[in-house]
């Protein structure tokens, strides 16, 4: 479903290669957790997949479409089938839970309808179902800035689900949440993953979470892919490789 070929990214203002020659592919049904230290390239990797970050080399194919050569209009069509969940939730302030969730449909609708806020009965019905599936029915009309972190991330997930995605991306979706809430969020993500038969790719810091939920783990270090395999095989040695050994390059990277 996604094929990554020789993907490289370097940021012009630093000499550090964020990603070097990554080759990997993902299939429908994979629940992939991406591990690595801060600055290892996880975030850059996820952002390349939906084109928020432009690669400096290599290619990404999504359903055999080359992402890097797509025009803005075609890129939008690829993006609207990919939900994304963010670390800091990235909700629109001052809008309600329901309004935020409805913005998930924007890629499918005309700008005029989006501007005036006209939604069809089907879209409103879908929003209602999605809101109840993330357990926020009572909060639907509340402004998002009054929600707790966990609730905000549920809105983030619901917005992604409104896209009726085939792929779900997560850039550290639980990094600003407490352990209990993180667990709830992962349970929800896994449930949606299975119900909607998605391909899910999520960055995490927490190795235990990854091992508990992922069907596959990949790990980055200094921009290189150093592990790609089952969660069961990611053990002490791999953990040490990913997180503990030499410190080079990590100082200046993000």
């Amino acid at each position: 479903m996604i094929m990554v070929e020789n993907l490289s990214v370097h940021y012009p203002d630093t000499k550090v290669e964020a990603l070097t020659n990554i080759n990997v592919s993902f299939n429908k049904g994979d629940f992939v957790c991406v591990l690595g230290k801060s600055g290892a390239g996880k975030s850059t990797f996820i952002r390349c997949i939906n084109g928020l970050q432009k690669p400096t080399g290599g290619e990404i194919y999504i359903d055999d479409q080359r992402v890097s050569t797509l025009k803005e209009e075609q890129l939008r069509k690829v993006r609207r089938e990919m939900g994304m969940v963010f670390q800091h939730f990235s909700l629109i302030p001052r809008l309600s839970v329901q309004q935020n969730i409805l913005t998930g449909t924007f890629g499918y609708r005309s700008s005029f309808k989006n501007m005036i806020g006209y939604f069809t009965a089907n879209e409103l019905e879908l929003a209602k179902r999605v809101i109840s599936s993330v357990g926020l029915t009572e909060m639907a009309n509340r402004r998002v800035e009054y929600l707790s972190g966990g609730q905000k991330q549920r809105v983030g997930i619901a917005r992604a689900l409104m896209q009726q995605p085939k792929i779900l991306l997560g850039d550290e979706p639980v990094a600003s949440l407490d352990p209990g809430t993180s667990n709830h969020i992962f349970t929800l993500l896994k449930e949606m993953h299975e119900r909607l038969k998605l391909l899910t790719i999520i960055n995490v810091h927490d190795v235990d979470l990854a091992k508990r939920y992922a069907t596959r783990i990949i790990a980055f270090k200094n921009g290189h892919l150093i592990y790609d395999g089952s969660p069961e095989d990611f053990n002490d040695k791999e953990y040490y490789e990913t997180y503990e050994s030499e410190q080079q390059n990590s100082f200046f990277s993000m």
């Binding site: 939008r76 993006r79 609207r80 629109i92």
Partner: peptide, 8 residues
């Protein structure tokens, strides 16, 4: 970024 990511 979130709005770009939904394909708006």
């Amino acid at each position: 970024e979130a709005m770009r990511a939904v394909g708006a």
